[in-house]
Simulated scan of single mutants.
Amino acid sequence: MKWFGALLILAASTWLGFAAARVLHERPRQLRQLKAALRALEAEVMYGHTPLADAAMHLARQTAAPLSELFERFAAALCTEETSAAEAWEKSLRAVWGKTALKQGEFEVMKQFGATLGQYDRLTQQRQIALALAHLEREEAEALDNQARYAKMAKSLGVLAGLLLVILLM
Results as ranks from 00 to 15, higher is better:
residue 33 Q to S: 12
residue 115 A to M: 08
residue 14 T to I: 10
residue 122 R to I: 15
residue 78 L to N: 00
residue 31 L to C: 04
residue 49 H to V: 09
residue 132 A to F: 00
residue 108 E to R: 13
residue 42 E to R: 12
residue 100 T to E: 04
residue 62 Q to A: 15
residue 47 Y to G: 09
residue 95 A to Y: 01
residue 164 L to A: 15
residue 166 V to K: 00
residue 72 E to M: 08
residue 108 E to C: 05
residue 52 L to C: 07
residue 155 K to C: 13
residue 3 W to F: 14
residue 37 A to Y: 01
residue 93 L to W: 03
residue 67 L to I: 07
residue 70 L to T: 04
residue 90 E to K: 07
residue 131 L to T: 11
residue 115 A to L: 03
residue 18 F to L: 14
residue 119 Q to V: 07
residue 165 L to P: 05
residue 143 A to E: 03
residue 80 T to G: 06
residue 119 Q to T: 14
residue 19 A to F: 10
residue 98 G to Q: 12
residue 124 T to P: 08
residue 101 A to I: 07
residue 8 L to I: 15
residue 164 L to S: 12
residue 138 R to H: 11
residue 22 R to M: 09
residue 134 A to V: 07
residue 27 R to H: 03
residue 68 S to K: 00
residue 162 G to I: 01
residue 21 A to E: 02
residue 112 Q to G: 12
residue 144 L to H: 04
residue 28 P to I: 01
residue 43 A to V: 11
residue 118 G to W: 01
residue 71 F to G: 03
residue 99 K to E: 15
residue 154 A to C: 15
residue 81 E to F: 11
residue 108 E to K: 06
residue 96 V to I: 07
residue 53 A to M: 11
residue 108 E to I: 09
residue 34 L to I: 12
residue 150 Y to D: 05
residue 95 A to G: 05
residue 110 M to P: 00
residue 135 H to D: 06
residue 39 R to V: 12
residue 50 T to K: 09
residue 104 Q to G: 05
residue 134 A to E: 13
residue 144 L to Y: 06
residue 148 A to W: 11
residue 118 G to R: 00
residue 9 I to G: 06
residue 105 G to T: 15
residue 123 L to R: 14
residue 130 A to Q: 08
residue 75 A to Q: 01
residue 39 R to N: 12
residue 33 Q to N: 10
residue 21 A to V: 10
residue 43 A to N: 14
residue 63 T to G: 10
residue 37 A to N: 05
residue 167 I to C: 09
residue 97 W to Y: 11
residue 121 D to A: 09
residue 95 A to H: 05
residue 121 D to W: 09
residue 22 R to H: 15
residue 60 A to V: 09
residue 163 L to C: 14
residue 137 E to L: 04
residue 89 W to L: 01
residue 59 L to K: 05
residue 27 R to C: 02
residue 15 W to I: 13
residue 31 L to R: 00
residue 160 L to P: 02
residue 98 G to N: 07
residue 100 T to I: 05
residue 145 D to A: 15
residue 126 Q to D: 08
residue 36 A to T: 04
residue 1 M to H: 14
residue 21 A to C: 10
residue 43 A to M: 09
residue 68 S to R: 03
